[in-house]
Amino acid sequence: MAAVETQVQSSSSVKLAFRDLGKTFFVQGEPKLALQNINAEIRTGEFVSIVGASGCGKSTLIRIAAGLEQASEGGVYVEDNLVIKPGQDRGMVFQQFSLFPWLTVKENVMFGLQDQCPDKARRGEKALVWVERVGLGEFVDYYPNQLSGGMQQRVAIARALAPGPKVLLMDEPFAALDAQTRGRMQRHLLEIWRNLNITVVFITHDLEEAVLLADKIFVLAPKPGRLVATLPIDIPRTKDDLERDKYGPEFERVFKELSALLADSVPLDH
């Protein structure tokens, strides 16, 4: 099986950085400050989670990182290059319904490979590798409407990763799934993350999920969206060097700490 190309970097280099990032929306002519002065760094290979109450701007933040929206001030830098528009270097997985319904599983995964791989047959082979990697080898020729939510998200992940991005951005990817499927997907994602050593930015409103998966958690407070805390998660990944024990005392302690941080993050009056 061909190795997926990833950047060979020292683990202490910064892959993605938010620098003085601000975003103002205009709602009916009135300016609304969505994000204010966000400064944060994410190192290569880190799994970072961004959490915060509804309306804190975490979706906006990741969309700016993806290039789908523009910052009003400052910006997002990937390997010190300013992000101005969407691109293959930042793969994105949305919450749901982003697969192209008129394409099969394999064709969806092939979509992002067109630039790198003009030969259709080769493209198909590469896509097939990815489809099998996410465990959907039997469903290569199925249409997204024929798949369950969990399967669709697996395809979405394969599709985003096939072009070999530097960063994987995920906007609440498992929020629409039932608890059991979510558990499987979390495990699956950790395996992929470990195998590729890819940098992941993972938005979630589920604190338990954040503590379970991330090396580091950024806590955003709403109105206006500000980074109020950065919490490194030191709990060892005991299960196969991937998963943490949800029911251990360390987990509970960190979870409580995170919950407290969120409860304290009150909206500022503006």
């Binding site: 789908l68 528009k85 949305f94 319904f97 982003s98 192209f100 599709r159 985003a160 072009p163």
Partner: peptide, 23 residues
Amino acid sequence: RYVEAALTLGANRLRLLWQVVVP
């Protein structure tokens, strides 16, 4: 979302039109 997904997969204007919007 289809358009946005295509953009994050590196689609240019032409590809967006013919491979996403039309189908």
